[in-house]
Design a binder for these strands. Structure first.
Lengths: 246, 246
DNA sequence: AAATGTGATCTAGATCACATTT
DNA sequence: AAATGTGATCTAGATCACATTT
């Protein structure tokens, strides 16, 4: 893993999410003040990774926590038989590096070229102990992640493939909007197999679901990684569908 | 919701979990010191509820967070078509009352008679702002919950019914052990339908999975809510199985 | 009476095999 | 060459209907 000095044109670590207590119409906001970001930047080194590189793997000693500057990360678990389950896709301003008893509970890999802040755990803990405001903002972010993970579980409980995929696209769209990016087109930074592993379905079923949505005129793909919602109301209906029968 | 004075034989609010950073062989520990528990107790009222009572429902103003003294809580979401998804089962020393923009993100109901600490959110926030140690312990608990929720998602991604149910039983067993209860027999405080809604399968499939495990001599039920693992190695194999083919 | 179990039927999606696209 | 798409086949579990247990 290559490391570099902190570049001058960044503003420091950032964590965003929807506020747990204040109404904000679903808008995500930056939890850290400029000052907090500066104080955190001192602790961090910047790491750059190529697409496909592994950041850490499950069971390794968890000596650092990461914050994404740019790029997309896949967090996943590998079963003994080699099958993978994608725990989360992580984007700009997300934190990752979840551990239990000092060991990472999953693996993490770069889906795109990546720039990360890397925080050694002891330094971060010392900083948190001195800074109640920062701790509070970490709590806000964790509450946000907890809700996201519950949404993931909710999605996985869906029985219909079309519904899972539509809900997944909604999720990506919301995240894009939350990051302030244009939302006319949904961008998929991951491949079909990653999507399948996130949704608990085979990649063939993912492919057929995309076809199904396209055939029915509900989505329109520019290429395999860029698509639009063409029929919003039907799309939303399918995403909300919890049934199994036709 | 009936409220009562704080009784004298309790030691105050408690939150437990596996430490994120210190090796502890999977053992859960109490994150709060006696002093912290006492400081928190001042903020809380005690609420007692009967089995089946609703604690709060999705979308309501989230003005309180709860901590379980005794009993079991079901957190769930209801879809427009009336189908339910169980987000989590919550036990002694768990916190609940997750909110987004000041509104509860799910509903919560008593599965057994319940005693709860109830914390008004503003008082809790003021307390947290003054107490970095307490904040840190809340972070530890949230990290624990985040891992639990990821496990739930992992379980939901399983394709085989037997595997889901076996993994669920493992989970209950671990929680029981973590609470320091005897673990020779697994106790199910919830009904088959709740289990189905947690595992993303029909209650009939749950019933058949129990029968399947019983027929094959892997579990032994005393009654519908008490069972033993009779063949541990086969049980663990089934719980770890990620395949779909026979 | 409500919860749970069980049988019969049906279908969505897994799996396998190969074609097509990037 | 790897990722993706598509067709054919098969089966696990959903659904419906009713029996049994608590």
């Amino acid at each position: 893993m290559a490391r570099a000095k902190i570049s001058t044109n960044t503003h420091g670590p950032a964590i965003r999410g929807v506020d747990p207590w204040t109404p904000s119409a679903g808008k995500m906001r930056q939890f850290l003040s400029e000052e907090e970001r500066a104080r955190l930047a001192v602790l961090a080194s910047i790491v750059r990774l190529n697409k496909g590189e592994e950041i850490y793997s499950e069971g390794q000693r968890a000596d650092a926590v990461f914050n994404i500057i740019t790029g997309v990360v896949k967090a996943y678990k590998t079963a003994p038989d080699g099958s993978e389950h994608v725990t989360a896709f992580l984007f700009k301003d997300d934190m990752f590096g979840l551990s239990e008893e000092g060991k990472y509970t999953n693996s993490a890999k770069a889906l795109t070229p990546l720039a990360l802040y890397r925080f050694p755990v002891p330094a971060l803990r010392r900083r948190l102990a001195k800074d109640a405001d920062l701790e509070f903002h970490v709590i806000c972010k964790l509450l946000h992640e907890l809700r996201e993970t519950q949404r993931h579980a909710f999605l996985l409980a869906r029985r219909r493939a079309l519904s899972k995929v539509a809900m997944f696209l909604q999720l990506l769209e919301n995240l894009q909007a939350g990051r302030g990016e244009r939302t006319a087109e949904i961008y998929l930074p991951m491949n079909r197999s990653d999507i399948g592993e996130y949704l608990g379905m085979s990649l063939e079923a993912v492919s057929r679901a995309f076809r199904g949505l396209t055939t029915r005129g509900i989505i329109k793909s520019r290429d395999r990684r860029h698509l639009k919602i063409a029929d919003r109301s039907t799309f939303d209906e399918i995403a909300a569908d919890t049934t199994n029968a036709p």
